[in-house]
Write a protein that binds this DNA or RNA. Sequence first.
DNA 1: GTGGTGTTTTGATGTGGATCAAATTCTTTA
DNA 2: TAAAGAATTTGATCCACATCAAAACACCAC
Lengths: 256, 256
Amino acid sequence: MAPMNDLPLLRRPVTINLTQRANASGCDECGARHTGMCGVLTEEDLGFLSSVAQRITVAAGDVFMEEGDKATYFFNLNQGNVRLFKSLPDGRRQITGFAGPGYFLALAQSDKYVFSAEAMDSVKLCRFNRISLMAVFEEFPALERKLLDAAMHELVIAQQHMLLLGRKTAVERVASFLLSWAERLEVCGVGVLPKPGSVLHLPLSRMDLADYLGLTIETVSRSLGQLKREGMIDVPSIHEIILLKPKGLSDIADAV
Amino acid sequence: MAPMNDLPLLRRPVTINLTQRANASGCDECGARHTGMCGVLTEEDLGFLSSVAQRITVAAGDVFMEEGDKATYFFNLNQGNVRLFKSLPDGRRQITGFAGPGYFLALAQSDKYVFSAEAMDSVKLCRFNRISLMAVFEEFPALERKLLDAAMHELVIAQQHMLLLGRKTAVERVASFLLSWAERLEVCGVGVLPKPGSVLHLPLSRMDLADYLGLTIETVSRSLGQLKREGMIDVPSIHEIILLKPKGLSDIADAV
DNA sequence: GTGGTGTTTTGATGTGGATCAAATTCTTTA
DNA sequence: TAAAGAATTTGATCCACATCAAAACACCAC
């Protein structure tokens, strides 16, 4: 390892007191202990992170982070699901993604939040003061590395979604979504087709779906209807979809 | 600073020989010496990076990085401009962004490129073997930090673009684009309106514009025409646009 | 169960932007 | 400087998806 003074001094001075080790109380029973940020920390190191965290519960429907507001806090999701979105003044909304346990929120380096976050169900999260958290990052490069990985993964997803929004038809969008949702639920591996007959649990409303896919609820409904008529899927209940022909869906999604 | 053995061992072993210091020959006259990755390195440290770089020139129109190909190389742009895009088998194309000097290419952690890159003019770049570069990153955390900043900034742009592609009308898209291009050219600060009368140099074809905005060339042309008729812009030549009413454009772009 | 409310589906119609086509303007080459 | 070719604009028509409207269904509370 090269001596430290060989390194350019981008890293800012550490401001937290390293002797104040809190134990990671509350982390043991946390659903996100072994995912995301926390997953890369040892039991001991987690104490630091835990010591600057406030554990918060947010009710379904609450917008706990609003685009344009001062970015005082960062968040790490422990339980529940969240929609991330941007809006136009006249109410048009684009959901840019969904986030679940282990997801770290507010990767933006601006001093304002650049998107909003709304709880889809009852959400438990750790809230961090931005400044304190920055200091923790200085101390644990593993966190920063993890953040980089996460950001790069987000970018890949975002690029896929730009292709979808800019160039795909309604049915192609819905087919693409179903397959990506299967991946998210780990019904299948990344880039691997789910088995025929796989059941998908969809806790989203048609409105969410529409705002994510850049469509209206009517078009989403009709597209699902078309895929059903074509024998690609079955829709036993509103929040459940069975993928009858994943290969067919994939061909539609990728316009093969 | 906490002792090193307090740190979790995410960082992989360093494989480059640190005594092999090449001087950063060729970097002095490089247009990107003080931007992007290179900007965060000292003259001395740059030698490392330089020693694992191959300097390449790519002709206009060359696709030097293709979606789906094995991600053998990473690239850092020194001169010229590049379009980044994803395509569907039937030829539909979505440009996900444009990149200029200082831009680091291939932030993806997959073993395959997830998008393509095509030179818009004569492009000079540094090509890095992926493995070697990873090793350099281990050694210089400043690079990783810079990469994180870049990735987060990209994400913000990507989210804005998703809103544009999913929810904005044709004229709103074009207006949004003109303002974002003004920022890119540093005609104005980030989030600041350009002065009325600011001249924009647009080295893009209408096709590029269309594929970036999720429209057809005809609609781009008509939208520019509409903005012209409304007195928002003037178009003295195909590749030049004068922003007559930046505030008006901004109101259109953000649907105010 | 029943009634009420909100969500989803289905149907009828409208429209923004796509497509097709031709005219115009830029660019290149000789 | 003219002619050929490419890119852009403009015009006419079409269609995928939006919008408007009503019916069907799901989810409550009581």
